[in-house]
Nucleic acid binder design. Sequence first.
DNA 1: TGACTATTTCGCAATAGTGCGAAATATTAT
DNA 2: ATAATATTTCGCACTATTGCGAAATAGTCA
Lengths: 91, 91
Amino acid sequence: MSSKHPPHLIFRALANEARVRVVRELSGGEEKCVCDLVEACGLGWSTVSRHLSVLKGAGVIADEKRGLQVFYRLTLPCVTNFIDCLEKPSR
Amino acid sequence: MSSKHPPHLIFRALANEARVRVVRELSGGEEKCVCDLVEACGLGWSTVSRHLSVLKGAGVIADEKRGLQVFYRLTLPCVTNFIDCLEKPSR
DNA sequence: TGACTATTTCGCAATAGTGCGAAATATTAT
DNA sequence: ATAATATTTCGCACTATTGCGAAATAGTCA
């Protein structure tokens, strides 16, 4: 059976500079709390929170609450490869 | 020097079902005329033409005019790999 | 309980994306 | 030059996305 996240919806989830920045922050494999991601994006908390929910809804990231904080991690590793490919001078 | 097409703009160009369909049609490496792509998308000519210009503007496809027809081809092969990855049941 | 911290949800105004049909452009054939 | 074909450009109405601040929610600690 096919995924409930068709390709164009995943592209849509990534079609924003802040959301790509979030994915980059998580590309090393380490989890980050929302506070880290807010700082990385340079946007307001409410805005970043909604960006995170878009990425999560598309299955690109997942979250886990620990204590007061929520930690996010990347769940779609091949997006990192693709971004790397896009950044090579000659793709 | 870095590309003039940052990742989030490439994702934005792909953030539409018709445009992903176009990329798929071109993934085999063969060129297709607009008429083929109009048929594949099931949308009007003017709409598909604009989708093609979005993809071209992002550097995902390129065009070449031959006679009365314009042929498009994929210029960003790694997008095919990424879409394939997205469609695997377990990514 | 109440205060404090981390995060999300809501409502808003502004901007961007979508698909359409009509008109414009360009190339070829008569 | 005229006509026919293939494609693009334009203007419109509609919908979706964006970022913000205020308010709501949830967990921890005194």
